[in-house]
Amino acid sequence: MNLFRLLGDLSHLASIFILLHKIQTTRSCRGISFKTQALYVTVFVARYLDLFYRYVSLYNSVMKLFFIASSVYILYLMKYKYRPTNDPSIDTFRIEYLLGPCVLLSLIFNYKFSVTEVLWSFSIFLESVAILPQLFMLQRTGEAETITTHYLAALGVYRALYIPNWIYRYITEDGVVDPIAVTAGLVQTGLYIDFFYVYFTKVLQGQKFELPA
């Protein structure tokens, strides 16, 4: 564990709390893509199956359980408690275009051709693109509530911090590198660049998040 990874994980935790706070206080999941949230549940369940057969640390297990539980809870809030505020007609990204390639990539690129390792690879590839339905929705509506942009920013910071974490590990752990996680991670972080540009130039200057028409 190093500082970059810890701060990254805390930023990930913060993003979930921000999202829950947004839904609870506005009593609405307007502006949140159900598809992206459902993809995160898929990601966490596929990756954290190792809870059953591998112990890394208490920190690791607690975080995994939290990510699975909170992501399922968010789906519940969107699908049941605040269902009327969820508008599927603007959440139109075709996720089969993400799932198909991720299945294919995980069958080709994995560290061992076993069910759990392929699922792990799949979860890494899927996480890298899971935000696309959300960004697509943002693009379509052209604006977002400030709190929603804080949620996305925290998620983006989490991904960005994993990059110095890998560099740090490469240096301190004698050349250790996880090519699958790094490649997918770089792609994932790249997806946030446009968003961050608007976030820093508008939202953090006190303006509303609005995309140019």
Partner: peptide, 10 residues
């Protein structure tokens, strides 16, 4: 090992 899957990250 560089490519050995350790998966100690979240």
């Amino acid at each position: 090992n560089a490519t050995e899957a350790q998966h100690d990250e979240l």
